[in-house]
Design a protein around this nucleic acid. Structure first.
Length: 451
DNA sequence: ACGACAAAGCATACTCTTGT
DNA sequence: ACAAGAGTATGCTTTGTCGT
């Protein structure tokens, strides 16, 4: 009947997923169906269960009946329980439910009601939009923090490679042939066995010969190859760090190129000198009588032991000093971080991502061969960390947006529902609604209209 | 036709916000 | 601090659907 239609609660809520209209009390129930603990509804592909869980997770639930909170409403409850078969009391409840509607019925009252309904839906919409926007902001912030962490570690690796260093701890030009062998070749792997023998990369028990000279040649070639790539990359990094001023433009890049060229030339010169020195010192060694070679070899071995002992002492001293310096720097860095790091890093300090030696070499080589995707790209290190991070996020954002627009048609539709004013659920409005629910809606509507 | 079950509506209890 | 009002969760009931 028409009175029924008038007394029914207005369906002023719309499910943002299926578009079905509900009274305010029923929409929450409808959504809860998908997330309730006991026998939840299976996901239908239209209702985003995770999203619902998130939304409904923030609401304040009423205390369940029978809890300690309830002491004033006992009479009301008793009444309702006594009348177990409650009649469809729409007509009774009318005056109580909406006095403005029922009693006044005049234009100002109706306007007020309409205004309230409008305000309510607007507030709800803006709340949900804010929730989504906040979620997006959080994600973006998290991405920024992760990137900061990553790039910091990357820069640390670059600096660790070191600028302008020699490829060797000891200058090979100051050593004679036996000393070169002991210094730069590995000990024989079978040194501690009863029959030690030489390999292509080791020195020998007996005085060295042509085989060790060849091994040294290969060794130096390999070392110089590695050193060149790392030296060039790290020279660029450090040079840029030194000369970088935000106001400087192209002049800076020219300086960097010049420094890179000089580093490369220095590496080539040194390699040439070492090769010549090796050749000359071997010739000198080869002309010596065998007996003399044996004496000198023994002497060199003894000297080598002495040097290692001295080195160990010096290293122990250095280690002690470094430990002190490290502790001091750590405390200074902590103080600096407290002031300049993002506030989230105070909650969880950033990890140091470990990069092993093989990876460092790979980066260095790729960087020297101008492969910006994988190498130590010399173009990024001068930039401010914030600039780098925003650049990277912009790049990824386009990927995220593309991915969302291609696969997230549901989300787009939901957002439209949320941001737009509530629509009347006509059959053509919600293409994603399954036929079953649509037919149900139609049937219900026609029932209301007929009655 | 009937029972079981799911979903939605109604009344009410409860929470939160706002104005005094 | 308190009262009023708005919004919303929950218990109970009705309604619709499906299988037997």
């Amino acid at each position: 009947m028409n009175t029924d239609l008038l007394t029914k609660a207005p369906k002023d809520k719309t499910c943002p997923y299926c578009g079905q209209a509900f009274t305010s009390s029923s929409l929450g129930r409808h959504l809860d169906l998908y997330i309730k603990e006991k026998n939840p509804k299976a996901p239908d592909g239209i209702h985003d269960v995770d999203e619902i869980r998130k939304l409904r997770g923030t609401i304040t639930r009423r205390h369940p009946r029978g809890s300690s909170r309830r002491n004033t409403a006992s009479s009301a409850t008793a009444g309702s329980q006594a009348g177990s078969k409650r009649s469809p009391m729409g007509s009774d409840g009318e005056s109580v439910r909406s006095p403005e509607e029922g009693d006044i019925g005049a234009e100002p009252g109706q306007k007020g009601h309409q205004q309230r309904v409008l305000n309510r839906s607007t507030m709800k919409s803006s709340l949900e939009i804010r929730h989504r926007v906040q979620d997006a902001l959080d994600t973006a912030r998290a991405a920024e923090l992760a990137l900061r962490e990553m790039i910091s570690s990357w820069r640390a690796v670059k600096h660790q490679i070191g600028m302008g260093s020699m490829p060797f701890d000891i200058n090979p030009l100051s050593l004679d042939f036996p000393a070169l062998c002991l210094q730069f070749l590995d000990p024989p792997p079978t040194l501690y066995s009863s029959t030690p023998h030489t390999t292509s990369t080791s020195w020998s028990i007996s005085p060295p010969n042509q085989q060790q000279k060849d091994s040294l040649t290969i060794h130096f070639r390999e070392q110089f190859k590695k050193w060149k790539s790392s030296s060039i990359a790290s020279t660029a990094v450090t040079a840029e760090d030194i000369i970088y001023r935000p106001s400087h433009g192209t002049a800076r890049q020219e300086d960097v190129n010049c420094l890179l060229q000089r580093a490369e030339e220095a590496a080539m010169n040194l390699e040439k000198q070492v090769a010549e020195h090796l050749s000359i010192s071997f010739q000198a060694w080869d002309t010596l009588p065998v007996q003399r070679q044996l004496e000198l070899w023994n002497l060199e071995m003894a000297r080598s032991i002495g040097k290692r002992q001295q080195q160990i002492s010096a290293l122990q001293e250095t280690q002690y000093t470094l430990k002190q310096e490290n502790a001091n720097l750590k405390s200074q860095l902590d103080n600096l971080n407290r002031e300049s790091q993002p506030k989230e890093f105070k909650i969880i300090p950033p990890m140091t991502l470990r990069v092993d030696g093989a990876m460092r070499e790979l980066w260095a080589e790729a960087g020297a061969s101008n492969s910006p995707e994988t190498g130590l790209d010399t173009g990024v290190s001068h930039a401010d960390l914030g600039t780098l991070v925003s650049g990277a996020i912009e790049r990824w954002k386009s990927v995220v947006v593309a991915s969302r627009t291609s696969s997230g048609m549901n989300l787009q539709r939901d957002f439209d529902h949320v941001s737009a004013p509530i629509k009347t659920p006509t059959s053509g409005t919600y293409p994603m609604t399954p036929d079953i629910s649509r037919s149900t809606q139609q049937r219900k509507r026609s029932q209301y209209i007929n009655s």
